[in-house]
Computed example of a mutant assay.
Amino acid sequence: MKVKVNRHAAKALKKMLEEAGAEGKLFRVYVTSVHGDHAHYDLKLDTPTENDEVVKSDKEIDFILDKNDEYLDDIWIQFFHVPNEEWLITNPSKGGHHHHH
Rank of each mutant, 00 (worst) to 15 (best):
F79A: 14
D52G: 03
D42F: 06
K11Q: 03
A20T: 08
F63G: 04
A9N: 00
V5G: 09
D62L: 15
P92Y: 01
P48I: 08
K11P: 00
E60S: 10
V5E: 03
M1F: 08
S57M: 05
A9R: 00
D58A: 04
H97V: 08
K4R: 15
L17F: 12
K25L: 13
H8S: 15
G96M: 08
L72P: 00
V31C: 07
E86C: 12
T32V: 15
K2S: 14
K59R: 13
E18P: 08
A22Q: 05
S33K: 06
L13V: 06
M1T: 11
I61T: 06
D66H: 07
N68Q: 15
I89C: 01
D69G: 04
L45V: 03
E18V: 07
A22V: 05
K59L: 12
L65T: 11
D69Y: 01
D74G: 07
E60P: 01
T49W: 00
A12Y: 03
D66K: 07
P48Y: 03
W76Q: 11
H97Q: 13
R7Y: 06
T90E: 09
S93K: 15
K11M: 09
D58W: 01
L26R: 12
L72C: 02
H101P: 07
L72I: 05
H38N: 13
L65N: 12
A39H: 09
I75G: 05
E18I: 04
A12M: 00
V3R: 07
L43D: 12
F27D: 03
K15L: 15
L88M: 12
L72Y: 02
Y30K: 04
E53W: 05
D37L: 13
E85M: 11
N68Y: 13
N91M: 05
D58R: 02
D42S: 11
Q78C: 13
N6I: 05
E50S: 12
L65K: 13
H97E: 14
D58F: 01
V34N: 07
G24S: 09
D58C: 00
T90S: 14
K56V: 13
H99S: 15
D74M: 05
K67D: 08
T47R: 09
H97D: 12
N51V: 04
P92A: 04
T49H: 00
H97P: 02
G24C: 10
V55A: 04
T47K: 10
T90N: 08
L26H: 14
P83N: 02
A12P: 00
I64F: 05
D42R: 00
V5T: 09
